[in-house]
Nucleic acid binder design. Structure first.
Length: 739
DNA sequence: AGCACGCCGACT
DNA sequence: GTCGGCGTGCTC
């Protein structure tokens, strides 16, 4: 009988698998899909994942090599997760080996055992105990404990002698005792202790929360995609906690995804206060072994609740019961380089494969999710704030009518004063860090450019630097124009400048700024948040960082300093993002007893987007935006794939994409790919970034299926194009950034 | 991605 | 005379 052939995914950027012969002295049954192996690849050894067994290969026998070592004795991923990863590799057109590598903690990718291990010892069968002197009581004490010739662990030997470790070391050295490592067995606790740990009373659910929870409970046990559209402060988290308690009652696990920025200590405290050490967290601050331990705990079922960021969607789970994706609209769920997956979309696919519900929560759902929920009817709403809190009132401030000095209009300045005088806190939002976005010469019109990007340098006054926010390049701040030697001026507003202006206007009000420049370490953010909580800070200015996840219960006035950045963008998603930002920031206001006030500064108060948002809320905006998307054939009514190319000169990138376009047209002619538009190629909006020139080709399709079929045929052709050699290119399926 | 091979410039 | 620059090609 011929030897089986193993198809193995290796961690390389190659879009194919490799065939190998079984390892020597290895039972064929040990080689199952999902098992990791070490294989020779070229001149190196690589970690591979068995994806299939066959009996036939087209690879000539002379080229076939043998698996080196089999790492696992059971598959790392269960069949559902394994299938999901194969699907993801297919769907996102990313090399399968890299997909597997991305799905496991780093140490597993380096060959670490999947199960926790501990040392064990036993008496060697050929041991000659007679040679050990009688007076060596320490050694004999340990030998006595080992006299049944079985493997013993630390617990079994610890009582034998005070220095049992030293004795074992000696016995191993004498060749009397042998040592090994055994998998640490774990017991899956099915009994739930949900609620038992809560020291503080569990809040009562209001009627809407109760209804929502009932709907989620009813969905447990089968696949549903549920959208929980709950306004800020409506008590989504409490609903999650109650739903999770139900999942634990069923003896199942819950997987909770959140954006990194929303994984605040407060949120984690809420989970651990309710569920104790049943919770594990997977976030960026963990080191490799902590991450592996959390992952193992989830896989064995010891951890009943897993909270994590994007990549946690790949956590192996012993008994999954519910997937929750909080802030599902957040762009950070889409990986923006390499394996460009969406954790939200894979979360839905995973739930479907497990036959469990997935709960997508947001105050500002993505249009994709909203459209899906409207079609399926699985829309759960929490339209009101929980408790006493009132919704904030939104008002536009017409900058053409009022003008602004240093970015602040007169009505805004007055309202800030009034709120401060009433003893309240004020939050100002500006999504632009630094002092000013441009350093300008009024005499000759020069403005400081980045040498490597098609962008202006941002003025950072305090650090006395000019910084490119796209490539990180820095140079000293200058006062003089390099071409005409006139004095140069910072133009426009950044958070640093607003902070300075506020300090001058309200010298009595303690001030804090929250952006990437003022907060470098996570601890600093917590410290500032604590000062705000304790009302030591009265004025708060910040970027996106302040708009996500944090609660500012004493803030009664929110000012959106510049609403106009997203109004006229070429990117069809810009208006959605702007609406989400406005609603999210507005949600920071008035979360306690005082009603909040939101002032939005704009040059375009009549803009339909702002009008819809003010008059009809996020739902009204979404209706209008969806109608626009449908008319313009944008997602969610079509599907996109973006082909990006970069090269040291733009011509090469464009030439490659023109060749790609020709190849795509060719494929389209050969088969039935109606409903696919090939748009471009075109230079990227910021063509030169960090010294490389970038261009795009966009594929737009009526259906995901045809788009997939076209990509499947097109990508191998792209690999073979001669013009591919001088460019770096990548595929982005369901892109969210079109540049 | 690694990792080699291979063919042209500045150094002990 | 070598060390080493990164273009090109291959990995079952």
């Amino acid at each position: 009988m011929p030897e089986p052939i193993l198809r193995i995914a290796v961690d390389t950027p190659l879009r194919r698998v490799f065939d190998y012969l079984p390892a020597k002295n290895c039972s064929a049954n040990a080689l199952q899909p999902g098992i990791r192996v070490w294989v020779p690849l070229g001149r190196r050894r690589a970690l591979g994942m068995i994806v299939a067994r066959t009996t036939h290969t087209d690879i000539p026998a002379s080229k076939l090599r043998r698996i080196d070592t089999v790492i696992d004795d059971e598959p790392l991923f269960d069949s559902v997760l394994f299938g999901l990863l194969q699907f993801a590799s297919d769907y996102y057109r990313h090399p399968i080996g890299e997909v597997f590598a991305a799905a496991m903690p780093g140490l597993l990718g380096k060959g670490a055992p999947v199960n926790a291990q501990h040392s064990v010892w036993r008496l060697r069968s050929d041991a000659s105990i007679a040679d050990i002197p009688k007076r060596a009581t320490r050694l004999h004490a340990v030998l006595h404990a080992l006299n049944d010739h079985q493997w013993h662990d630390e617990h079994a030997l610890a009582d034998s002698h005070a220095d049992w470790r030293g004795a074992l070391r000696d016995l191993v050295q004498r060749g009397v005792v042998e040592t090994s490592r055994q998998a640490t067995s774990t017991t899956l606790e099915i009994a739930s202790n949900a609620g038992a740990l809560e020291a503080v009373p569990i809040p009562q659910l209001n009627a809407a929360q109760q209804q929502t929870l009932q709907n989620i409970t009813a969905a447990l046990g089968s696949f549903h995609t549920l959208l929980l559209h709950g306004v800020t402060g409506s008590g989504k988290t409490e609903v999650y906690l109650r739903a999770i308690a139900q999942v634990l009652e069923r003896g199942e696990q819950a997987l909770v995804l959140a954006p990194e920025i929303a994984l605040t200590p407060q949120l984690l405290t809420r989970f651990t206060a309710r569920f104790g050490d049943a919770v594990v967290v997977l976030h960026s601050a963990l080191n490799d072994s902590e991450r592996l331990n959390a992952w193992r705990a989830a896989r064995t079922g010891q951890a009943r609740i897993v909270i994590g960021t994007r990549s946690a969607i790949f956590t192996a789970l012993a008994k999954p019961g519910l997937i929750i994706i909080d802030e599902e609209h957040d762009a950070s769920y889409k990986q923006q380089e390499g394996f460009r997956y969406s954790a939200r979309d894979l979360g839905i696919a995973r739930a479907q494969r497990h036959g469990i519900p997935v709960l997508l929560g947001s105050a500002t759902p993505s249009l994709e999710t909203l459209q899906r929920a409207r079609q399926t009817g699985n829309l759960l709403s929490l339209p009101q704030r929980a408790g006493e809190a009132q919704p904030p009132t939104l008002k536009l401030i017409d900058l053409r009518q009022h003008g602004a000095t240093q970015g602040l209009s007169t009505p805004v300045m007055m309202r800030i004063r009034e709120h401060l005088d009433a003893g309240h806190q004020v939050l100002l939002y500006l999504n632009r860090r630094g002092f000013a976005p441009v350093l300008f010469c009024p005499s000759c019109g020069w403005s400081a450019p980045c040498a490597r990007c098609d962008a202006r340098l941002t003025v950072h006054k305090r650090q006395h630097k000019l910084v490119c926010h796209h490539c990180g390049h820095e140079q000293p701040l200058r006062n003089e124009c390099p071409s005409c030697h006139a004095e140069v001026k910072p133009v426009g507003q950044g958070t640093e400048r607003i902070e300075e202006t506020l300090a001058q206007l309200y010298p009595d009000a303690p001030l804090a700024r929250i952006d990437r420049d003022s907060i470098s370490r996570k601890g600093e953010l917590d410290a500032v948040l604590a000062r705000i909580q304790q009302r030591e800070v009265k004025l708060l200015v910040g970027t996106q960082m302040v708009s996500k996840g944090h609660h500012f219960p004493h803030v009664t006035l929110v000012v959106i300093l510049d609403a106009d950045q997203g109004l006229f963008s070429a990117d069809f998603r810009a208006s959605e993002r702007l609406a989400q930002s406005i609603v999210q920031v507005a949600g920071r206001a008035g979360r306690e007893t005082h009603a909040g006030e939101v002032l939005i500064q704009t040059e375009y108060p009549d803009h339909p987007l702002l009008q819809q948002l003010l008059n009809a809320g996020y739902e009204g905006f979404a209706d209008a935006a969806l109608a626009e998307r449908e008319a313009a054939h944008w997602p969610p009514f079509t599907r996109l794939a973006l082909l990006r190319a970069e090269a040291n000169d733009l011509g090469k990138a464009l030439q490659f994409l023109r060749d790609t376009r020709t190849a795509a047209q060719h494929i389209k002619h050969g088969k039935q790919y109606s409903g696919i538009q090939v748009l471009g190629p075109a230079p990227a909006p910021m063509t030169r970034k960090a010294g490389v020139h970038r261009a795009h080709l966009l594929l737009q399709s009526d259906s995901a299926k045809t788009l997939q079929a076209l990509l499947a045929a097109l990508i191998p052709k792209m690999d073979e194009l001669p013009s591919a050699k001088s460019v770096r290119w990548s595929v982005d399926v369901d892109p969210i950034e079109l540049f």
